[in-house]
Simulated assay, not measured.
Amino acid sequence: MSGRTSSDGPITLHRGDLPDGLDLGNCVAIDTETMGLKPCRDRLCLVQLSSGDGSAHLVQIIPTRPGGPPADCPNLKRLLSDPAVTKLMHFARFDVAILQHTLGITVAPVICTKIAARLVRTFTDRHGLAALCREMLGVEMSKHQQSSDWGAPHLTPEQLAYAASDVLYLHALWNRLESLLIRENRRDLAQACFDFLPARASLDLLGYDEADIFAHRA
């Protein structure tokens, strides 16, 4: 079901699904906003997308009824599961899990800038998106709307601007991080981590988010 679309400059809000025929290219920045941080409990409310051109498309996920499953969003699901489209995320482990759980798809292929940062920026523990954008791109990001009510039927302009900011800089950030991965000879290792993310998300959804199945203990 695709509902109304509204635009505010470079931010376009779509209610229910992406419009037919929208082409965002072969590498799309993706982020999500939810009612909480437990994918099996908390509702997916918003999916943000950007092709890296300075604009963002936001899809508000509409439930079929209060507390019910989301209405079908075939265009969004097609893009997220398209093997020809790379999904660029920050902390992809969570976003992949909530998308796979809610939409019933496999989200791949994926690149995660947080994993990339942790592989090459071992001199610091600042791997959050705001810190990386500040230190690597000179961009200041506001996090004032991070804990707002994303399940509200009508999102404020401040919420939309915050949500869009989480995808607008991912392409530039990945370009910087990939060059560091290549410099440090860790690009292949990073790719192996990225390729594992759909399975890692499935393990989280099965309850293995804390138990380490690779650990040598009962």
Rank of each mutant, 00 (worst) to 15 (best):
M1Q: 15
D8S: 15
L13P: 11
G16E: 05
G16Q: 13
D20K: 00
V28C: 04
T34G: 05
K38Y: 12
P39S: 11
L44I: 01
L46K: 12
S50A: 13
S50E: 07
S51C: 12
D53Y: 04
G54D: 04
G54Y: 00
G54I: 00
Q60L: 02
I61M: 14
R65P: 02
G67H: 02
C73D: 04
L76T: 03
K77Y: 03
R78N: 07
V85T: 15
L88E: 04
F91W: 02
A97H: 14
A97T: 07
L99R: 08
H101S: 10
I105N: 10
V107W: 01
P109C: 02
R118G: 09
T122W: 03
A130V: 02
R134E: 15
M136Q: 15
M136W: 07
M136D: 15
E140F: 04
S142P: 10
H154C: 10
T156V: 03
P157H: 07
A161H: 09
A164T: 00
S165G: 10
S165C: 12
D166I: 00
H171K: 01
A172H: 13
L173F: 07
R186H: 12
D188F: 05
C193W: 15
F194T: 01
L197Q: 09
L197P: 03
P198M: 02
R200M: 08
D204F: 05
H216E: 14
